[in-house]
């Protein structure tokens, strides 16, 4: 699974990446997590509200820092 976090490097974007990494590590969930910083690329993805999360190319969340619970739901970890 490929997870892309689109963020400008703002505090919320960093927190989003951390949340994903933490939840994945805790659940031994293997995913390729990448942080995309380039604003032009982010805009081209159709993202307007950062932090945004794309899983396998699909925009699944935008404009807020997810709670651990939200991440688990998105990744299908129970």
């Amino acid at each position: 699974m490929k997870i892309v976090i689109a963020g400008s490097g703002c505090a919320k974007c960093k927190a989003t990446e951390e949340t994903f990494r933490r939840v994945c590590a805790a659940a031994n969930f293997i995913a390729d997590i990448e942080h995309l910083y380039d604003m032009r690329e982010i805009a081209k993805l159709g993202v307007m509200l950062t932090p945004a999360v794309l899983i396998d190319g699909k925009l699944v969340m935008s404009g807020k820092v997810p709670a651990d619970q939200d991440v688990k739901k998105l990744l299908g970890i129970s």
């Binding site: 400008s8 982010i42 805009a43 159709g46 950062t50």
Partner: peptide, 14 residues
């Protein structure tokens, strides 16, 4: 101004 740039560029590219 830092949070508004993605909003504005996102709209522009859309």
């Amino acid at each position: 101004s830092c949070t508004v740039i993605p909003v504005s560029s996102g709209l522009y590219y859309a």
